[in-house]
Each structure stands twice: as structure tokens, then as C-alpha cells.
Design a protein around this nucleic acid. Structure first.
Lengths: 338, 338
DNA sequence: CGTTACACTGTAAGCGTTTACACCACAAAC
DNA sequence: GTTTGTGGTGTAAACGCTTACAGTGTAACG
């Protein structure tokens, strides 16, 4: 391709009549350089359109100035605010952002087939279950900076985590349904297998039931999968069990969409026959019919915070063990409020 | 940080009793290596958890195996399918993805302050107006592989572009409004200044009007900004002009959301008093009240295709000058259809 | 049995930076 | 007028790979 030779630091040095070390000092603002020399170098740099080559810097300095983000796949409404937060964080702190999707299989595919890790980033942001636990452990013992987003660390490992207050958010949501809307038979749709967010939401749900003296009924719990389609399936399952239901906590907002659609198809009215509530407050939530009662999760803030923690870990070796962001109850019509 | 020394190619070579050249051959599958040797090297690699360091490879091979994506900011519903497509493309082709937001200012901030470009990626995907035209020109003449997404090349430059059929999509949309719904006074909300998508949509709009003998009325055109908030403002502007309107082509779906909200606030019914149509068919479109008539743009496919073109350009020096993807009319209730 | 060919492997020269170290001039301190 | 800094600069050794080139050894050929 471009046989055309790019300017190197040596070209700049020669043209400015200084050594490459001095040019490097000017670029990185490390060490002392006289104002006159610096100005001369700067002008040659822009004259030559010189820009240092990342690979060479990385090799020499053992720093890539890049943060890696690992996720399973880019999908769902959840993703947009998260990425916005991560991008904001990396830009604020002067890092580049490298994205890698592990797709279906969180296990590292081939041994030498470099997945995003220590060889091309200074630290890694790991989203939920995008990475095999074994790989997390390996990276941890290799002392590679890691921050987990919306999941907790394997037992015993001191890896910083950033997530939202799932349990207390769910607790308040269910409290509201019971106390203000008089619900007693509330179904819960869990997230995909191993989703921690779902686990804590279920804990909040159970806690609320217990606090109100309502017995936990396993027939009211089924898989929602944090996914529209699975939400529809869940509704049909629940209805076929012929147990009484007056509300559905769909696990998350995406699932709620499918739930509301499916209920309408079954000829049931939301919220008159069955109230529906979600979790996350995705942008779409307020446009559903009826608008969705949910818990607002500060997805963007959490993502940004995770980057900050990661950079702190990279630079100082320290970071907060756990960052838990507060959630907020958002009441809309899908639960019967007017 | 990790004072712990990572395994290098030399460690692998020593342990396997071969030279580093041989290890390199095994890793890259270049050149001949006996099956026995290869197996031995492979086993040492996984034993040592060795993975080549990207910076060193990049420096030695003059390839980064990374594709850069430049955009202004990660925002809007548009972004999610686009990123999914780009990610799919890069993964299929074995590239990493580096994302850089130029944010407000498309001009390169400081001279030596490396924005994503020739120093850390093999090629660049440029989204709409995320990059200054001067910088595009510079990269072009530096022979750096470039593909433009949803914008066209500066005059005279042979830079491959990938976009959707905005003009014919808009043409069909307006044809439908006029012919099937009997609209004659159709307002058009343009995108932000310089947005090419908007330009072509307006061309389609004007072409349709002309074809039906409806005179173009500049009072029916105002800024929509491809943005919800600006959509609301636009509605108030239009109404204050006290010109007759029976439909609003909001420019894109995001704008439609604001338009519908604003119309409702003004006490107008959609579609009985004023029909509303958008463009893109974002996931949210079908959940609006009423569900939105729009033009489906293959955002994900376009993004994926752009990556393929870029990689072809990187590898062979050739790519299609223009890739135009077909759009599809999606009729829903917001235009009066039942 | 000497060639030739080819499969396999090693040697070493970069790639473009950063950075430890050394050096020099000149000013301030004795 | 010798010391002792201290800004300012240069030299050169890494950093961990890829790859051109130069060997080996063995099999097949004449």
C-alpha cells in the first residue's frame, strides 16, 4: 500500500537539528528542553505532519495507552449508554478504546490467538460474563489491571467491580407494587443463566415479599432471559400454569417489551389485569404502551466510573473494591399509576 | 505495576529448543515447520500462556491488525446497529476495533496529539462528518486506507463510500403520502448542517413533489437536526408560521419522536390532523404511539459492508467506489394507514 | 556417488520509539 | 579559581517481534 514513507522521529530530529531524544522529550513533555528548541521542534513536527507511531511507543515504553473492553456482543438497548460512558471515560483520561466481542463463547478460542488482553492494552474492562472465569483468574495472577462491570469477582480475588444497586432497586420496586398498588401475586422473570444482576434483583424481590408476609411461590418465577423474545415465551409459560398473577416483574426493560406484547395478544389489559414493571429505564421505556414503570439504572455513569477505576488501578495500583451506584424508582402507567 | 515478567517469544524458543524465528513461523503459520516441532512449540506456548505482544508485532510487521472507527459521538438509536455491523465485520476478518470520538470538534486538536490514524490502525472508517475534510484529504494523499460511512468523498478524491439509498427511499415515502394518503402540504425537517443523508432525503422529497405537480414551499422546510429536542422546536416553528400542513417528514426517526410529542402537546392528533413519517426504522419506531411509518435503512449491513470494503482496500488496494444499500418502505399507523 | 531440490531451521538486521546515562556549559558558591 | 550544582542536550541500549538470507540434512535423481 503506502510505499510512501511516513515521517519518523529521526526525520524531525534531523530537520530541527537536534537529537531524537530531544524530540521525544518535546512530544512527551518529559525532561527539560529550552523554550527555543521546543518551539523549533514543534514547528518541524507540524510541518512534517509527524505523529509518533503507537506500536513503537508501546514497545519502548511498555504502555499502550489503550483500554480494552470485553463483551459478549453489542446488542440490546443497554449497550448504548454504557458505551457512551466508557467512551467519555477513556477520552477524559486520554486513553484509546479497543473493543472485543467474545461472542457466543467466553472461553478463549485458541491459545496463541491473542484475545484482547495484556498484549495490546494497559487494562481491561470486563462486562458481565464476557470472559471465562479461568481467564479472569489468570489475568489477575498475571497482575494485569482488570475492572469488572456488572459482575462480581471470583471468590478471593481482589478485583474492583462496578455495578448498580440491583437488590435495593428491586426491593423498592416490589415494595411499591405491594404497598401502593395492592399486588400480592407478583411473577419474576430471571435473566439468562448466571447473570448476576438478575440474582440480586431476585434477592430484592424475595426480600420485599418476605417483609410483607407474602410467601415465595416458585411457580411465579421463570426465565425471562433479559430478552424480548424470551419475555413472550415466559408469559405463555406463566399463563399455562394457571396460577393467579396480578403483576409481572420482567427482570429488565427489554424483557418487559415482550411481556407487554404477549399479554396484549392474550387479551389481557396492562395494567388493569396485570401490571408490568421492568428494570434499567432504557430510552424506549417511556414510549411503550402503557409507559413502563421501572428502576432507573445509571448505566452510563457506571461505565464511566469503571473506566476511572481502571485507570486509577493502572496508574497507582489501587482502586475501590466495589462501586455500587444508586438506582431510582420511575413510576409510569404500566403498574396502574395514573 | 506488574513487575512480573511476561513470557516473550525468546522464552518460548528456549523452552522448546528452537530459534525465535521458528516460533514466529508457528504462530503466524508462515513458512515451513515440521509437524513435530510445531506441536512442541504449541505446547510450550500454552504451557507458558504466551501471547505475542501487539506492539512488537506491529513495529516489526508494519501492520496493526486494527481498524479505526472515527465518529463524533456515540449517541442516538442509530449507533447500536451500526456498531454491531462494524464489530461483526472486524471479527469476521480478524481485525481489532479501535474507537475514537472527535466529539464536538472534527478538526484535529493538537498537531502531535495523535488522533486515531496511520499510527495505530491499518485503515479508518469515517462516519459522516466526524473528520475535518482537510484531514481526510491529508490521509488520502498519504495513501492511508479510508472508507467513508454515510457521507461522500470530497470532490476529486477516489475514496470508497458506503451509504443507504436516501433519495429513492424518501421519494417512495413521499410518493406514498401523496398518492395513498392524499397529503399535499408536507413539511420537511432537515438534519444538522452538512448532513448528507439529509440532503439526499430532501432531494427525494422535492422530486416526489415535482412529480406530482405540487410546488415546493420553503415555509414547509425547517431544521430538525436529527434529534428529538430539535424536532419539538421545529414543530413549534412550523405551527407559528400559520401555513397549512397535513404531514411532517421528520428527516429521521429520532426527530419523529420529538415531533409526535410536540404535536400532542399542541392538541393535534397524529395522524388524523397531521401525519408523521420518519426515516431509519430504529427499533423504537414501532413502539411509538402511533407506531411510526418510516423507511428502513440497513444500518447494520451498511456498517458491515464498509468494514469489508476497507479490509479489501487495505489488502488489495482496491475497493468499490460507492456502495449504495437499498431501503424499504415501512407503513405503520402514524401516516394514517390502518 | 556427486548433484540438485527441497523441507526445515537458525542468524541477524531492522522496525521507531523511550529512557538511563553521560556529557557539557555556565552560574553560583566557597 | 576551584568546586558544585543544574538546565540543556546527545548517545546508545533496550523493547519483542518479523523476515530476508543463509545455512543444514536428507531424499531423489542422474
Amino acid at each position: 500500500m503506502s510505499d510512501y514513507a511516513r515521517a519518523t522521529i529521526a526525520d524531525v530530529a534531523e530537520r530541527a537539528g537536534v537529537s531524537i531524544a530531544t524530540v521525544s522529550r518535546v512530544i512527551n513533555k518529559t525532561g527539560q528542553v529550552s523554550a527555543a528548541t521546543a518551539a523549533r521542534v514543534e514547528s518541524v513536527i507540524s510541518e512534517l505532519n509527524y505523529a509518533p507511531q503507537a506500536a513503537a511507543r508501546g514497545l519502548a515504553s511498555r504502555r499502550t495507552n489503550t483500554i480494552g473492553l470485553i463483551l459478549r456482543e453489542i446488542t440490546g438497548e443497554f449497550f448504548q449508554p454504557m458505551l457512551r460512558g466508557i467512551e467519555a471515560g477513556t477520552r477524559e483520561l486520554g486513553y484509546d478504546l479497543l473493543i472485543h466481542c467474545t461472542h457466543r463463547s467466553p472461553e478463549v478460542q485458541s491459545p496463541a490467538n491473542y484475545p484482547l488482553s495484556e498484549h495490546n492494552s494497559d487494562g481491561l474492562l470486563v462486562f458481565t460474563d464476557s470472559l471465562d472465569e479461568a481467564e479472569i483468574i489468570r489475568l489477575y495472577y498475571a497482575q494485569f489491571p482488570l475492572v469488572l462491570l456488572h459482575r462480581s469477582a471470583p471468590p478471593g480475588l481482589h478485583i474492583p467491580c462496578v455495578t448498580c444497586e440491583n437488590k435495593s432497586g428491586a426491593r423498592r420496586l416490589i415494595d411499591y407494587l405491594i404497598e401502593q398498588r395492592g399486588c400480592r401475586r407478583i411473577a419474576f422473570l430471571s435473566g439468562p443463566d448466571g447473570a448476576e444482576d438478575s440474582y440480586w434483583r431476585e434477592m430484592g424481590y424475595r426480600e420485599s415479599l418476605a417483609a410483607h408476609g407474602i410467601p415465595f411461590d416458585p411457580r411465579l418465577v421463570t426465565l425471562g432471559g433479559f430478552d424480548q423474545h424470551q419475555g413472550r415465551i415466559a408469559v405463555h409459560q406463566l399463563l399455562s400454569r394457571s396460577v393467579q398473577i396480578d403483576a409481572i416483574f420482567a427482570g429488565d426493560d427489554d424483557t418487559s417489551i415482550g411481556v407487554i406484547d404477549a399479554l396484549k395478544e392474550e387479551g389481557l389489559r396492562v395494567p388493569e389485569d396485570i401490571a408490568v414493571v421492568g428494570f434499567d429505564d432504557i430510552p424506549l421505556a417511556r414510549y411503550l404502551t402503557p409507559p413502563l414503570t421501572t428502576v432507573r439504572a445509571p448505566i452510563e455513569t457506571a461505565a464511566r466510573e469503571a473506566v476511572h477505576q481502571l485507570v486509577r488501578l493502572i496508574r497507582t495500583g489501587e482502586a475501590d473494591r466495589l462501586t455500587l451506584l444508586p438506582t431510582e424508582l420511575i413510576i409510569r402507567r404500566s403498574c396502574g399509576a395514573t
